[in-house]
Simulated scan of single mutants.
Amino acid sequence: MSLVTPVILGSVRSDRQGLRAARFLIAQLEALGHEAPLVDPAELKLPLLDRMYKEYPKGEAPRVLEDLAVLYRRADAFVVVSAEYNHSIPPALSNTLDHFLEEYFWRPSGIVCYSAGQYGGVRAAMQLRAMLCELGTPSIPSLLPIPRVGKMLDANGRPQEDWLGRSAAKFIGELVWYAEALKAKRAEGVPY
């Protein structure tokens, strides 16, 4: 089954390394026949959160939010690519995620975290788990941490060590399992 899985990038820094991780995940998902559009807040130039998408009168939200809402309603799952800033998630990621709510409901998420150091951003991932669950897109049990991201992935997102491809395959397999299960249940109806 082909799935729609937006890959939400969390950093807007000019020298960000997360784009490597996002490109890697997109390539892995597309190789399996899934649609994996990049949601890049640096390109989208999202406004700082003043009102959530749902708080705008119908048809009056900024175009960028309308377009994301359409994409998110089509989504079967989400992949969130997060750096670790001060042991937490980047502010651009929080801003990107917080614009929506119901569009995430009943869809799983997978967390890809990264850092320049050896821990691969896992401290940020722990905080992100709570946030994603509250948004209605609970994360799958597995994480895909990428330590020393600048060495593990080249600028185009190609892995420089074999273990990363194997880890990504397991991570994506688990995400697809949850996405297919929840897609089938959404087709039957949701609790409210």
Rank of each mutant, 00 (worst) to 15 (best):
E134C: 05
R73W: 00
L32I: 07
D67P: 07
R123Q: 05
L93A: 14
G173L: 11
P141I: 04
K58W: 07
V122G: 12
L29T: 06
P90T: 15
E55M: 09
E84P: 03
D76P: 03
N86K: 01
P138D: 00
C113Q: 09
R16F: 11
A21N: 06
V39A: 09
R186A: 04
Y56A: 13
A22C: 12
M131W: 08
V7E: 08
P145G: 15
R73E: 01
R129C: 05
F24G: 14
I172Q: 04
K185D: 08
R51G: 07
A179V: 09
A169T: 14
W177G: 15
R158D: 15
Q17I: 09
D50A: 01
G120F: 14
Y56T: 10
Q118T: 15
F105P: 01
K151S: 08
I146C: 15
E102F: 02
L175S: 02
S94W: 01
C113W: 07
K45T: 04
L153S: 08
A61D: 05
L93G: 13
T5C: 13
Y119Q: 15
H99C: 03
S109N: 10
S142L: 07
L25V: 13
S167I: 03
D154H: 14
A77N: 01
A184P: 00
H34Y: 01
G117N: 13
S11N: 13
A31I: 13
F105H: 06
G150A: 12
P90C: 13
L144Y: 02
Y56E: 08
I172T: 04
R13S: 15
S2P: 02
L128S: 09
P138E: 00
M152S: 10
P41D: 00
E84Q: 09
E84S: 05
G33L: 07
R186G: 14
Q160N: 13
P57F: 10
A77L: 00
L97M: 05
G189D: 06
V12A: 06
V80L: 11
K183G: 04
Q17F: 07
I89R: 13
P145H: 15
R129F: 01
I89Q: 13
L135Y: 01
R107V: 10
L182G: 03
D154Q: 12
D98Q: 05
Y192H: 06
